[in-house]
């Protein structure tokens, strides 16, 4: 096997995994039911873990395996299971209320991908192609995560959108060679902390208002409309 062919395979595979993460984002957009959203999120996290593992192999950077493992265990297994348990235990309404219809949201998501590509490709012409493309995809994932946060009414969707943004961040981080492990661990922990905080919020909202509509968060903050 020649070196160029090996390079091509490396390039294509990391591209593939990054694209799978992005696919996960789109899968998140078109979910109408809570459980489907958890599944899509688990799928995205799995793809991210695979991407991180592949980068670890390509860059010969063993600490990325740790990232991959953390991502898989936390985001693909623990968090979706925990969320599913909360939903079941609290007997929360299982459907998702959308602010903007799914079709327009998908179109907006595609526009974001175009924007991210247009943005990253010319801005960093000197960087290796592999890092550039991954960065463009990572930025797209991040933006779509934010889009999910603002186009869904449920508090649970807020959590999922937020963690999807984190996924985009990690995808960008693992694509760059030489990123120290500390950062990844801290990011993973931050996500966990955010999960705990959001979970706490959900439980408290449930206790007080018997609903998971984020609308109630506002009155909880003591603000008026």
């Amino acid at each position: 096997m020649s070196a160029s062919l090996l390079n091509q395979i490396e390039y294509s595979a990391s591209h593939l995994f990054a694209a799978l993460v992005l696919l996960g984002s789109f899968a998140l957009i078109y979910q109408r039911r809570m459980v489907g959203m958890f599944n899509a999120f688990a799928f995205q996290a799995t793809a991210l873990a695979a991407a991180a593992a592949w980068e670890a192999y390509v860059q010969a950077a063993p600490h990325l395996y740790v990232t991959a493992g953390l991502t898989f265990v936390l985001k693909a297994v623990v968090i979706p299971l925990a969320l599913r348990r909360i939903v079941r235990k609290l007997d929360i309404h299982r459907s998702i209320e959308v602010v903007i219809g799914i079709g327009p949201t998908m179109l907006a998501g595609i526009a974001l991908v175009v924007l991210a590509t247009l943005l990253v490709l010319p801005v960093m012409p000197g960087v290796a192609a592999i890092a550039r493309e991954e960065l463009a995809l990572a930025l797209a994932v991040l933006l779509i995560g934010l889009l999910i946060m603002i186009t869904r009414r449920n508090a649970t969707s807020l959590v999922i959108g937020f963690m999807s943004m984190e996924n985009g961040l990690i995808l960008g981080v693992v694509g760059v060679a030489g990123m120290p492990l500390v950062v990844e661990v801290s990011i993973a922990l931050a996500v966990l902390v955010a999960f705990i905080i959001f979970g706490l919020f959900l439980i408290r909202i449930r206790e007080r208002f018997d609903s998971l509509d984020a609308h109630y968060l506002e009155s909880f903050r003591g603000e008026r409309r």
Partner: peptide, 14 residues
């Protein structure tokens, strides 16, 4: 609302 705050941030970012 929280969602509007986020929308503002999103619009600014874009």
């Amino acid at each position: 609302t929280i969602r509007r705050h986020l929308s503002f941030m999103f619009a600014t970012l874009i």
